[in-house]
Amino acid sequence: MTRWLQHPPPRGVLLALLAAGLAACFAIEQFGLVDDYVRFVLITFGINIILCVSLNLVNGWMGEFSVGHAGFMALGAYLSACVSVKWLSWGDPLWMFPLAVIGGGLMAGAVGFLLGLLSFKTRGDYLAIITLAFLMIVKSGIENIPYVGGPRGFLGIDNHTTLLWTAVWTVLTLWTIRNLVYSRFGRGIVAVREDEIAANAMGVDTRKAKLTAFVVSSFFGGVAGALFAHQLQFINPSVFDIVKSTEILVMVYLGGVGSLAGSILGATAFTFLSQALQPLGTWRMVILPLILVLLMIFRPRGIMGMREFSWFVPQREFPKKEDKK
């Protein structure tokens, strides 16, 4: 795809680490190994990775500029809350919660599809404005639906977002997006970023590529929203505003556009930075956008922009010497 660090990934090491990580998450939940604050931060971290890598698909790999990701989060959050509080509250969380999360993702994905349709005609600035309008419509739309609590918010959501579920969804997101970007579908998305007309002339169905990017991105945005709702146990429309979108943008452009490793890095840095800045109160939201501005001036593609850590790259992408004749 782009450039990665030189060496092929060691076989199996990543899988072993992954298994160990999931086991650790399970153990932490089961035996209460960490205190509530640490657990909360870890879950936030996972959700941030999902948000960051999914927005990166549209803003990094496809090179558009969406400010609407918080809107997809909101859709996922509210729909999953409806499922778990109002529609299937009798269900066992073991199957009901995944269903709620998937439902939230599908809802966001469906709306993402519509936004993708709009991206056929409009690009660049105007598409950015459309995503902004979408965000405001979702927010003020929810404010006008008394069924989900209107401006006061949606109360009484159970805490279903365990560390293990978060980890599972995080891995699933990374896995899906990695397989997507290293497939012909993902290369089509990148080609659209590079040159839409040339891509089209080279057989890339640019419309399908755009829809794919928007749907996958918004699906996982919705998933993250669903996890977020069941972590906070209380959501209201003003949580999902432009500030939330900006937070995700900071992660993407800090870590690096068009990079899985960058997304993880961005989410990590952001999560811990924003925890560290917590005592500053609203000044935190002065410093974060300031970082974004400085990044744009000094390193517009982020730390890992367009580069990849070799462990996230499929083995086959490293041509062996003997293969070359």
Binding site: V243, M285, V286, V293, M296
Partner: peptide
């Protein structure tokens, strides 16, 4: 162009 929009958004928030 994207960098400029993001910067503007950031300045606004600052």
């Amino acid at each position: 162009r994207v960098s400029a929009i993001i910067t503007a958004l950031g300045c606004g928030l600052v």
